[in-house]
Computed example of a mutant assay.
Amino acid sequence: MALPNIFTKSVSDAVIQRINQLTASTQPQWGKMSVDKMLAHCNVTYEMVYEDIHPKPNAFMKFVLKLLVKNTVVNEVSYKRNSQTAPQFLIKDAKNFELEKKRLIDYLTKTQQLGESYFDGKESHSFGTLNKTEWNNMFYKHLDHHLTQFGV
């Protein structure tokens, strides 16, 4: 079953509406992350697209990621609760809730405005070239997983 298309304004707006329901004191329904760390964690996906702040994996590691991780990230199957997190997505320090929330909303808005054609055939940080459906699945299901984790 196809996931909602994050590149459409209606879906992007619905996700932003869910993000706006979060408060600095929202508690997770499972897992150990605080809401500020969850937002920062979700921002890592977009930092890897728009910012040059995360080291790119070497050729061998990229091969391993494509072989072992890519399908789990880009398919339509929801993530399991308490799934393992890649090291670069681990947020150890407390973050500014409002700043991380604004950053995530800004990234979502930018992604929706660029649209699926911008992403179709674009190289990802870790998995090589992805098509628009793979990008959508990666973006949407990660956000949906964590927003559900926090009850919104």
Rank of each mutant, 00 (worst) to 15 (best):
A59K: 15
L65D: 02
R103N: 08
N58G: 15
D36G: 12
F60I: 15
L3N: 07
N58C: 13
V35M: 05
K56V: 13
N43L: 07
K122G: 06
G121F: 00
E116Q: 09
N136A: 03
N71P: 01
F127N: 00
Q84N: 10
S78K: 11
P28D: 09
Y107R: 06
K70W: 13
K62A: 15
S126W: 11
V35C: 02
W135G: 04
L90N: 15
E51Q: 15
V44Y: 04
N71K: 11
T26I: 07
Q17R: 09
A94W: 04
V49P: 11
V69N: 11
G31T: 03
M48R: 15
L99K: 15
L104A: 01
M38E: 04
N137I: 09
D120G: 09
K132E: 06
T23Y: 05
M33Y: 14
N82M: 13
N43V: 06
H54G: 10
L108R: 00
F89P: 07
D13E: 11
L39V: 08
Y46I: 10
Q21S: 05
M138R: 04
L67Q: 13
N75E: 00
V74N: 00
I91Y: 01
N20M: 06
M1P: 06
Q84H: 09
S124C: 04
M38Q: 08
A24Y: 07
E100M: 08
F139M: 03
F127M: 01
T45M: 10
N136S: 03
V35H: 01
G151Q: 12
L22K: 05
I53Y: 14
D93P: 02
M38A: 12
H146R: 07
E47N: 10
